[in-house]
């Protein structure tokens, strides 16, 4: 059974149809990409899956249960974590605190237990610190754990955001333009990192990206959106040679 199934997903903002009749089935451990020109509705799809928008129509099922229209924090708890297109770290918290906070939704201590530091909370706090430290090591940020998150260079902030998402214990990771603003070397490192994380954490990855070299290399399957409509899907090779995709990106070929 597919991990995530999306059927007939439609999002209308007033008269504007941002996403129209979008279908998707993600199998466990896949890396699937969502591409398309600017304004095609890619982030809208993410926002619906992650619970930021309630779809106008359609169904989203994660591990067999319907999650369409549920609140974002519930969906995160259910096992879908996301990163943002424009990095959204907690600016006045340190690097390690940014990751620790991802564990907060999973602790069993009540606020009283945490305030009075009952033994359960002490154990859980220790777990949070150790878990966060492990994740930072995984993404190569252990040496800057105590620094302020905003003092990090751009590429590291992206990695930190991924570590924070992983701290919530997801099965499905939604990455919104993870390679944006990175140079070729950083992109290559990111690619290796995502492949490694998928293996270590048994993840399924669904990502939006404009860097075609990156997308073609990492994704096993691609979906292409244009004006909210799916215009193509298939392996990277198929997509590269699909005339409709080329048309959407480059404009219609004028025939003499």
């Amino acid at each position: 059974m597919a991990l995530l199934t999306v059927e007939h997903l439609t999002m209308k903002f007033g008269g504007l149809v941002a996403v129209n009749d979008f279908d998707l089935a993600l199998e466990k451990n896949e890396i699937v990409g969502l591409i398309g020109p600017n304004g095609a509705g890619k982030t809208t799809v993410f926002n619906m899956i992650a619970g930021y928008y309630t779809p106008t129509e359609g169904a989203i099922r994660f591990q067999g249960s319907s999650i369409a229209g549920q609140k974002a924090n519930r969906i995160t708890k259910a096992g879908i974590a996301r990163t943002f297109q424009n990095i959204r770290l907690f600016s006045e918290l340190s690097v390690i605190e940014n990751v620790m906070i991802g564990y907060h939704c999973r602790i069993r201590s009540t606020f009283l237990g945490a305030t009075l530091r009952f033994p359960l909370y002490r154990r859980e706090e220790k777990m949070m610190v150790e878990g966060a430290m492990n994740l930072l090591r995984e993404v190569g940020l252990e040496d800057v754990a105590r620094e302020m998150s905003t003092s990090l260079p751009y590429g590291k902030q992206r990695r930190l955001e991924i570590a924070r998402a992983l701290a919530t214990g997801p099965q499905l990771l939604l990455l919104d333009e993870p390679a944006a603003g990175m140079n070729a070397n950083e992109t290559q490192d990111l690619l290796q990192l995502i492949l490694k994380l998928r293996k270590d954490y048994n993840l399924t990855v669904f990502l939006i990206e404009h860097d075609m070299k990156f997308v073609m290399e990492i994704c096993e399957r691609l979906k292409v959106l244009d004006y909210g409509t799916t215009i193509a899907e298939g392996t990277p090779h198929e997509i590269q040679n699909n005339p409709r995709v080329i048309e959407a990106y480059l404009g219609e070929v004028q025939r003499a």
């Binding site: 992650a50 619970g51 924090n73 995160t76 708890k77 959204r88 006045e92 918290l93 906070i101 606020f111």
Partner: peptide, 24 residues
């Protein structure tokens, strides 16, 4: 405590707080 950290997260960025599973 981590509850206080979550409160700060709500202050800095509510959408991101929800993305890490915090019931804002």
């Amino acid at each position: 405590s981590s509850y206080g950290m979550a409160m700060k997260a709500v202050k800095f960025d509510q959408a991101a707080a929800e993305a890490v599973g915090i019931n804002t």
